[in-house]
Design a protein around this nucleic acid. Structure first.
Lengths: 250, 250
DNA sequence: GCTACCATACTGCCATACTAGTACTCAAAA
DNA sequence: TTTTGAGTACTAGTATGGCAGTATGGTAGC
């Protein structure tokens, strides 16, 4: 593991230590500040944070539950590689739920909500192309707002664990993030919600979510060591339509 | 907590203790052998299993991650009540992913798969109305097979944690389980997969998944103490169409 | 009878120590 | 030179004890 110089990682004492270690490690893993495949040990992190192994261990267990760590008894713990198929699976799940969410929003035309979303979009626009990391935060907030307002905040929380793998890819693709296009898609989405255009909003969010992973193959090509490819995986564009299509009755 | 007489809970030594405690507790919670809202303590379980508190604690952490336990620091740990909204959210998620799965299967007509599925359906039919608990296992296996064969086994695993809340409801509804109808739906689904009828298979799985929770309101009425209802929740049939509709482009 | 307070018995959280299992180094034997 | 085996330095898993915070029951004061 790459130490941050010789610094210790500072914690506060408002929350349980294990929770802080968890949040701290998760953030670093998702941002790919650890190399996938790299070893990480309880004792090492404990020493770095000047705490005992126990809270570190509990954080490890939670991270392993999200498939960010693989704990191998008596052998060691490693940062998992980004599972290519898990990324695609997570995207399908997210697309399905968010499509429902915007459908709900569009079908009830809440003017206060539309105003709030427009505010967020302008803030996103102001960032400019250079501030990709901050954009991801705003993007996260935008989508969270959608879920919350649709009364699906609970479902959103359930999905957060699944998003981990997708998030790692997003941070890998920071440099080639087409922020302008994503913001425009957000804006178009809000337009359609405002007009009560259910199917239009639906299509907009689906297109948007596929955009995020458009460059997955090229990212994979540029960082093959970060990924875990099942044998015989055939690379195809991540934004291909869902095979077989989806038909919902009403 | 209701002790099983004065017995201890036997563990083997093939797996880590914490994993065994986790599996043991999860099974009991999902089967509603603990009363939701009831307190449960590390020390109590540790004593019962004749192990130290540490592995029990680690099992608690994993269970809390699935929202089966609520750990309140310095106050105690309780079995969560079944979150009514979480059940509905989980159903939406499951419906979305399984609809994709059967679409994939229907669009490629795998005769070996169809044979396997038919075998499973006949075994389900043989059980008869009286063996609800065993039926749930077979049902689980059936749906798992669908996911596996569609190459979405990974996504299925991701969803397992979310299914916990739904499973608790299913065990509550054991007595009034319309097994005959569910098996017939399975059979109809296989028919449509065999015919390559994508949209038909899609509709079949959606209807089927809604069936499982059809009786949610009556279950809730019969066991109000098991459920956690957000204030102002308006009870409505769990199998209502998704608000706003879902339109997928192709 | 009511309120404020305090002792007590819990709770979960963390530190420490120890166990058992694995990987690795390096020297001795073939 | 290659192979083997013992020793060592790790790893995660578990047991135990002490800590701080919380609920509870009873009591003193009103």
């Amino acid at each position: 593991m790459v130490l941050d110089g010789q610094d210790r990682w500072r914690l506060n004492n408002a929350l349980p230590i294990s929770s802080q270690i968890y949040a701290l490690l998760r953030d670093r893993i998702v941002r790919n500040e650890f190399a996938p495949g790299e070893r990480i040990s309880e004792a090492e992190i404990a020493k770095l944070c000047e705490v005992s192994r126990q809270p570190v261990r509990e954080a490890f267990i939670k991270l392993a539950g999200e498939n960010l760590l693989e704990i191998r008894p008596q052998r060691g713990t490693i940062i998992t590689k980004i599972a290519y198929t898990a990324v695609l699976d997570a995207r399908f799940l997210r697309e399905a739920i968010e499509a429902d969410i915007v459908s709900i929003l569009a079908s009830r035309s809440d003017t206060a909500l539309v105003r709030e979303l427009r505010d967020q979009v302008s803030r996103q626009r102001e960032l400019g192309q250079s501030r990709s990391a901050e954009f991801i935060q705003l993007d996260e907030h935008f989508h969270h707002t959608l879920a919350q307002e649709a009364g699906k905040g609970g479902a959103w929380k359930l999905l957060e664990g699944l998003k981990s793998q997708m998030d790692r890819v997003r941070f890998l693709s920071l440099s080639q993030f087409p922020i302008g296009r994503l913001v425009a898609q957000h804006s178009a989405l809000v337009d359609r919600i405002e007009r009560g255009d259910v199917s239009g909003a639906n299509a907009a969010i689906r297109t948007h979510l596929r955009e995020v992973l458009t460059d997955l193959p090229s990212i994979l090509a540029a960082n093959p060591q970060f990924f875990d490819l099942p044998d015989g995986t055939v690379l195809q564009p991540a934004n291909a339509p869902i095979q077989g299509g989806i038909d919902h009755e009403h």
